[in-house]
């Protein structure tokens, strides 16, 4: 059990030809246990870099990511779903989902059973033996999500998982993600550049922007009942007030180069 996770004074810079490019500075926030936290920011603001730092794929230049006991997160405790569905094309849907369990040493019988349950959970019955190239974008992302769930870890990180999907599929996937999250009781951190996605999904929304980026604002949405709809008046009001703050207006479009 990880409990609350503290991101403390996190900074990340990359060397470049003309000096150092600072992507993140003094990023401070807490991820509460079992919550659905959304990190909302413009494109290229260092969201992916932040997520990879939390996942332990990138060592931070400053600060740390710690669990409640003050020790760094271990890979066993978390899983990440990548923006580009990182399924292994040489493995079938079921093999992809079984893989994290195989790495853990789960016996074959148990693996099969859990994989079948997960395939059912993400609505892919009948596609067990399909290879990723035979699946649509939405289905691939479902497999990736199921594989992340198969790892049985308390913390799940989603890096713009639905960015490449069409609007219809996206909405459906978002609703399903909430349903699965409610069912499976995990801590979820999701990155998005869509304000609507943030409003529909988050218990809390953290706004990440600036150059270098840091957390500019926090919104608590826990009193908004689920399932949410973007036509709900209070949600629309909140949406307007976030947009009115104009967080991304000084960004100058594609002026930021993080990744």
């Amino acid at each position: 059990m990880v409990g609350d996770i503290h991101v403390k004074g996190l900074g990340l810079s990359f060397p470049q030809q003309n000096g150092i490019h600072e992507v993140l500075r003094d990023v401070d926030f807490v991820i509460h246990s079992k919550e659905f936290l959304v990190l909302f920011g413009p494109g290229q603001c260092g969201k992916t870099v932040l997520m990879e730092a939390i996942a332990g794929l990138l060592p931070p230049t400053a600060g740390s990511v710690e669990d409640a006991q003050g020790s760094p997160l271990r890979t066993q405790e978390l899983c990440m779903v990548f923006q580009k569905y990182a399924l292994f094309p040489w493995k079938t849907c079921r093999q992809n989902i079984e893989l994290p369990m195989k790495f853990k040493g789960v016996p074959k019988q148990a693996r099969r059973k859990r994989a079948a349950d997960l395939i059912h959970l993400v609505g892919l019955d009948g596609f067990e033996h399909s290879y990723p190239r035979q699946l649509s974008g939405g289905m691939k992302q479902r497999v990736a999500i199921a594989a992340a769930y198969a790892k049985e870890c308390p913390l799940l990180l989603f890096d713009e998982p639905f960015g490449a999907l069409d609007a219809q599929t996206r909405l459906q996937m978002e609703q399903e993600l909430v349903r699965i999250w409610q069912q499976e009781q995990k801590t979820v951190v999701l990155i998005t550049n869509s304000i609507d996605e943030a409003l529909l999904l988050g218990d809390r929304i953290l706004v990440l922007a600036g150059s270098p980026s840091s957390i500019l604002e926090e919104y608590d949405l826990r009193e908004f009942p689920r399932p949410r709809s973007l036509s709900d008046r209070p949600l629309l009001n909140l949406r307007q007030s976030i947009l009115d703050r104009g967080f991304f207006e000084n960004e100058g479009g594609g002026d930021l180069r993080c990744e």
Binding site: A55, T75, C79, M80, F82, F88, K91, L99, K151
Partner: peptide
């Protein structure tokens, strides 16, 4: 490199990385 990252995140050791990825 996404495959390598993904495999690491999913818990692959060096040997599993070699045989599965």
């Amino acid at each position: 490199p996404t495959y390598l990252k993904s495999a690491k995140i999913l818990g692959a050791g060096q040997r599993a990385l070699l045989t599965h990825v």
